[in-house]
């Protein structure tokens, strides 16, 4: 029983990282119909910002997410203005390849600037509290709180604000949205900023339980795409459900099946797609 509780705690924190990762990816895929292969590097830049602010400068942790969101948003805007907007009429392949190249450039730049050593960041909280015979590691608490907070803010933004409404309109039909007089170019920038903020916070939270390195985001990219496909391309609720499903499958799988869980997780996704090819929350 204690072990089950422990696995659930692990699964919750893992799911929330997957969700933060996948919601940003799905937003971009839903609006632009393009895979952003550099999204893992957005997360990595969030981690680097945390390292510089917390480990190097000794500033309070609370500064890290805000600074990371500003830095990663600027990178997102550069991507939109430099790659995605100029290539908006060239289909999905060319911008996707451009993001692939950008991913390598960003990794190499960080390698040159910071070296290849794993960069340690102190945990936001340390220690643990005991519930029965199970332990709740305190470093998971900020991930759970931060993850839920970001998801709630995203939900409120998309569902309750005019900009959110505009994003949803853009997701459904960009031409129709433009005919309604919407400033498409500005809304595209907002989408990038939102997706970048989600990646930045994922980077901040991930660096507190792991270490920062040039390739820290690429390991999560495959899982992020898996969540997006399982949840349904472009669907934010789908990313939520998919993230929780994959987080729990992964956590239980790794605990009870060891490293074979990778195979188990992807077999599960294949099963979902056989039954529902449009994904858990996708529309036909």
């Amino acid at each position: 029983m204690a072990q089950i509780f422990q696995v659930i705690v692990n699964a919750l924190s893992l799911s929330l990282i997957y969700i933060l990762f996948a919601t940003g990816l799905t937003l971009i895929m839903g609006i632009f119909d393009v895979c952003n292969f550099a999204y893992g590097e957005f997360v990595m830049v969030g981690g680097i910002a945390t390292y510089l602010i917390v480990a190097k400068s000794g500033l309070p942790y609370i500064v890290a997410p805000f600074a990371a969101m500003i830095i990663v948003s600027l990178i997102g805007i550069i991507f939109e203005k430099g790659i995605f907007y100029p290539m908006r009429n060239r289909g999905g392949l060319e911008p996707a390849l451009a993001t692939f190249g950008s991913s390598t450039i960003m990794q190499t730049a960080v390698l040159i600037l910071f070296g290849g050593m794993p960069l340690g960041v102190p945990s936001i909280m340390s220690g643990q509290f005991k519930i029965g015979s199970a332990y709740f590691p305190m470093d998971r608490l900020p991930i759970i709180i931060g993850g839920f907070l970001m998801i709630t803010l995203l939900f409120l933004f998309v569902q309750k604000t005019k900009l959110g409404l505009a994003i949803r309109a853009l997701q459904q039909d960009q031409d129709a949205a433009a005919l309604q007089g919407m400033n498409i170019a500005s809304i595209r920038v907002v989408v990038w900023v939102v997706a970048s903020c989600l990646a930045a916070v994922a980077g901040v939270l991930l660096s507190s339980i792991s270490y920062v390195s040039p390739t820290m985001g690429s390991g999560y990219l495959l899982k992020g795409f898996a969540v997006v496909i399982m949840g349904g391309l472009g669907s934010i609720p789908g990313a939520l459900v998919g993230g929780f499903v994959l987080g729990f499958v992964d956590s239980f799988g790794q605990t009870y099946l060891g490293s074979y869980s990778y195979m188990f997780a992807f077999a599960f996704i294949m099963l979902v797609l056989i039954v529902r090819p449009q994904g858990l929350m996708g529309k036909r």
Partner: peptide
Amino acid sequence: YDTGTADFSPFVTK
């Protein structure tokens, strides 16, 4: 565990 693992909690739990 597989190399590249970033979250060791499931393996440590086990």
